[in-house]
Write a protein that binds this DNA or RNA. Structure first.
Length: 608
RNA sequence: GCCGACGUAGCUCAAUCGGCAGAGCAGCGGUUUUGUAAACCGCCGGUUAAGGGUUCGAGUCCCUUCGUCGGCUCCA
């Protein structure tokens, strides 16, 4: 995963919002110090949508860390508005390291930052900077903070009605879980009240689209921590149907793309995982072994060793290559309890996994193919914006330099040819090979990692994979590990949030609700439903005692794309009256006309 | 795992200072037959997450455990 630029200065380095947020953070720190004079202050950068500041409030008499209360937040926010109203100037001062140490002698975290600044090379947030580092402070009112700036001219330029403190969270100093946990206050700040309101609306919109909420409302999936366990997903019929439709499509694409499907077991002997290196490098993410007849078996966290064994089951010739083994492989990985989240972070999941084995000269084309395949598959599901990342060789790595050179070049060239924007994360590759990650941007412009395409120089060596070349000699194949949707669970979480439950017609679990107005029309309506089912549409027939209005409401809440209202007039004219879930009414048409309409929406993968 | 907030019916939420566990929706039974987002009546539904403690009395206060949520860390 690419490192999120935490200070939000990627594009608009020192724009107005940056200054407002950065200044708001200082004002908040002042307010906190006034309330808790003994508090130690850490860092307070602007971030995407706002800012935060980390504090160490010391300990309670009983030794537990002192924390902020909701009342604190209110009082701090109130005091911030007073400071803002004071129109205090932000005054910059460039000082020496010794002066800084004297100024912040009671602030141990600042002293540590000064230490780093003096050494140079990194800024106060620990990010690399070029050239010598100048130590500076900014003061507003009676509060002076170690800071490189920039800030607004005076506190009055922070719009008081566009600032809001959001919540408190624990955060480790310097992001290191072995160091003290600080109290972080998150806030948001904008140029004006309207922007703040729009942001809060966006949060509310995101809340409504939360896949955990929609999963329950649309009856797609559930979890049951008491009886089943955390991070383990129960797919309900409607969710399972959607997954089936998605898999059906993706599997067809894989077959057309030259992949061969394999099935492999969920457990394997310890020697397999010793050989693959998983027990050396991945053990903390694997579950305890199961003992069978004195042998230890491990639940698989990955499918690769099994695919490698299939490769090794016979002598491979260069004529066989490339070999592309694909499997919807269910894997289990231990995740710490605090990180589990709905469908997007789970302990058991099914990857659309595949492993490509090819000769060196075939490698560039394989990369091109898999990159195109991935983007085009994601486009089929309605994703339109992609951000690609190339992760290059890390310091600790296996494999020969020539292989890294060739693989990185192939990945880079393929990225350039793809026409999609990409960034390079130097040194962020796995120890066993470089990789491309594909992020999709959802309807709320949030990035989600789905695809990953990874070289593997490790397993071919460890398992001594070979093929016989045209020269009759043994050669080592290249191996590429790839998952396009990533995992079915995560993919569905993202899909649900992207569409907010308003799915494209082809994949939506119930496409049509047939709604007779009175019992008089039940027979005709049942006939219509049967004809639609014969035409391959997924239909529900609402012959309950509810009024038509209630039937429509229920269909709307289930986000069913088409509602066919049938009253006396429709029976008489042998038609259906079509209402779309967006409220549009298409009026009366024949059943045949409707079938053509709905089929077209499926073929074109329309949302309607 | 760590910090914080929280945990009451399937869902959303009430319950004054520690004093009879309640409502809407959903479900079930009936009545109603209605023209584009909620008809009406009735019934069912609870070990207040679990366990312990304080108290005449605990949903409410205290402790432990589990879980959820927001972050942090992690996501070879």
């Amino acid at each position: 995963m690419p490192k999120q630029k935490s200070n939000g200065k990627n594009n608009s380095q020192y724009d107005d919002l940056y200054k407002i947020r950065h200044s708001a953070a200082h004002v908040m720190a002042q307010a906190v110090l006034e309330r808790y004079p003994e508090a130690k202050i850490a860092i307070g950068p602007p971030i995407k949508d706002g800012f935060y500041y980390d504090f160490d409030l010391g300990r309670n008499p009983d030794g537990s860390p002192r924390t902020f209360t909701p009342e604190d937040l209110e009082a701090i926010e109130k005091r911030m508005r007073q400071i803002i109203a004071g129109k205090h100037r932000f005054i910059k001062r460039v000082i020496s390291a010794d002066e800084a140490r004297e100024l912040f002698k009671d602030q141990p975290y600042k002293l540590e930052l000064i230490e780093g600044l003096e050494k140079g090379g990194v800024d106060e947030y620990g990010e690399p900077v070029e050239g010598a580092v100048e130590i500076s402070t900014y003061r507003q009112d009676a509060f002076e903070d170690l800071c490189r700036g920039p800030h607004v001219e005076h506190t009055g330029q922070i719009p008081p009605d566009a600032v809001k403190l959001l919540h408190v969270a624990g955060a480790y100093w310097r992001g290191d879980e072995n160091r003290p946990m600080l109290q972080r206050i998150y806030g948001t700040a904008w140029k004006n009240k309207k922007q703040l309101k729009a942001y809060l609306n966006r949060l509310e919109e995101a809340r409504k689209r939360d896949h955990r909420r929609l999963g329950r409302e649309l009856d797609l999936f559930s979890t049951n921590h008491e009886m089943v366990g955390g991070g383990l997903i129960l797919w309900h019929p409607k969710g399972a149907l959607m997954r089936h439709l998605a898999e059906e499509h993706a599997k067809k694409m894989h077959l057309e793309g030259g992949y061969e499907f394999v099935y492999t077991p969920h457990i394997g002997r310890s020697v397999l995982w010793e050989t693959s290196g998983h027990l050396d490098f991945y053990k903390e993410n694997m579950y305890s072994p199961i003992e069978i007849e004195g042998q230890e078996y491990y639940l698989k966290p990955m499918n690769c060793p099994f695919h490698v064994q299939i490769y090794k089951s016979r002598v491979r010739s260069y004529r066989d290559l490339p070999i592309r083994f694909a499997e919807w492989g269910t894997v289990y990985r231990f995740e710490r309890s605090g990180v589990l989240h709905g469908l997007t972070r789970v302990r058991g999941f099914t990857q659309d996994d595949a492993h490509l084995f090819c000769a060196p000269e075939q490698m560039p084309e394989e990369i091109d193919r898999v990159l195109h395949f991935s983007i085009s598959l994601l486009q089929d599901f309605g994703f339109e914006r992609f951000q690609l990342y190339l992760s290059t060789r890390p310091e600790k790595r296996v494999g020969e330099e020539e292989k890294w050179d060739a693989a990185e070049t192939a990945l880079l060239e393929a990225l350039k040819r793809s026409g999609h924007p990409f960034d390079i994360n130097e040194g962020d590759g796995a120890f066993y090979g470089p990789k491309i990650d594909i992020y999709v941007e959802d309807a709320l412009e949030r990035p989600w990692q789905l695809s990953t395409i990874q070289f593997d120089f490790n397993l071919p060596e460890r398992f001594d994979l070979t093929y016989v070349g045209a020269d009759g000699a043994q050669h080592r194949p290249y191996m590429i590990h790839r998952a396009l949707m990533g995992s079915m669970e995560r993919f569905f979480g993202v899909l649900i949030e992207h569409f907010g439950g308003i799915f494209p017609v082809w994949i939506t679990p119930v496409q049509v609700a047939v709604i007779p107005i009175t019992h008089e029309q039940n027979d005709y309506a049942a006939g219509v439903a049967a004809r639609l089912r014969d035409a391959g549409l997924r239909v529900t027939m609402d012959d309950s005692n509810d009024r038509m209005n209630a039937k429509i409401r229920n269909a709307q809440l289930q986000k069913i794309p088409y509602m066919l209202v049938i009253g006396g007039r429709e029976v008489e004219q042998q038609t259906v009256n079509v209402r779309l879930r967006n409220g549009r009414r298409l009026g009366a048409m024949s059943v045949e006309e409707f079938i053509v309409l709905a089929r077209e929406a499926c073929e074109k993968r329309e949302v309607i």
